[in-house]
Write a protein that binds this DNA or RNA. Structure first.
Lengths: 170, 170
DNA sequence: GTGCTTGCAAAGACTTTGCAAACTT
DNA sequence: AAGTTTGCAAAGTCTTTGCAAGCAC
């Protein structure tokens, strides 16, 4: 079965992602189910980081029958396919983030005042991680740099002065 | 009551740490209990990273009455006092590590083959974290860099070729 | 004696899993 | 038709908490 390339399906905006996910599923010998697409779509409905629970709520909004179990079973597929990125900042639950085209290594700056997570491009870290790993005779597979920071303008701004996602890079 | 400075108490090797912990407890208005010292000692009995469960076992070896609840209640005190460092590499449980004099920023290289955690000095990261934070108008409080790496000599060595704790730095 | 600490066991929080029904291929 | 996938609810895992007894000050 071929992937259609030009006819409009359910949610046009997600066309590329849906195609990619479908290809991923097929390549893995997994089944292409409606639930999986709903959860993919719900992931991309979040503009920021989201938790499994938030994804469940968002998915239920699209299809009320989606269950928590399916969320937890589908997330690993979305991550493996590269469409969703996992962001573990050491809280009880993990955060996830739809991958909307970021290609450089991301660092998270976590505001200890407002708890927001800023994503910052940090391409240099890729080289650095490789250097550190090399010294141990190892090859880096993934890495994370997270910085807990206090807002210097504390109190000036009820929403903690910055947009949720920043795209500065260092 | 003064801290005695020259008479030998229970475990001489830990004399400094015990004094420091005692001072910490007193300064916080907390009570100086035997359980807290046993857990401190058990922490330092580990040469590597340890989990809460491992600390419980080690503590019980010193004093069988120590309970899991006390472990979990004492760990935050040890961390706040700076005698123990928390190392969260995103597994279900956290790791801890007795602070035996490290002063520079540590990066963890986690071997995906043998699951060991290598501690590597990375003083440069302190500057880097501050730079990233500054760009957002924030002040860094803490940070972590963790690198998941594959062992390049896979299979050559059943214990994965490296000592548990490395002290290279980058 | 006063009130912080402890041990026990139960509760919590998030995630995973067993199983029968539903669905994809 | 054959074998995944799903929803539900129960189970799991690590950690936290309520409470009465015990201990530090």
């Amino acid at each position: 079965m071929e992937v259609t390339q030009n006819n409009h399906q359910s949610a046009e905006l997600l066309c590329d992602q849906k195609k990619a996910f479908k290809q991923f599923l097929i390549s893995k010998g997994l089944r292409v189910t409606n639930e999986r697409f709903v959860i993919l779509e719900a992931s991309f409905n979040h503009s920021e980081h989201f938790t499994a629970e938030e994804l469940l709520l968002n998915s239920k909004a699209l299809d009320h029958s989606i269950s928590r179990a399916t969320i937890y079973r589908t997330l690993p597929l979305l991550i493996e396919s590269g469409l969703v990125r996992e962001v573990d900042v050491g809280r009880d639950y993990k955060y996830y983030m739809a991958e909307k085209g970021t290609k450089t290594f991301q660092t998270q700056v976590i505001c200890t005042d407002c708890d927001k997570i800023f994503e910052v491009d940090a391409p240099f870290m890729e080289w650095y991680g490789k250097t550190v790993s090399d010294k141990l005779g190892m090859a880096p597979l993934s890495q994370r740099l997270q910085i807990n920071s206090a807002c210097l303008k504390k109190g000036d701004n009820p929403t903690c002065h910055k947009p949720y996602i920043s795209h500065d890079h260092v």
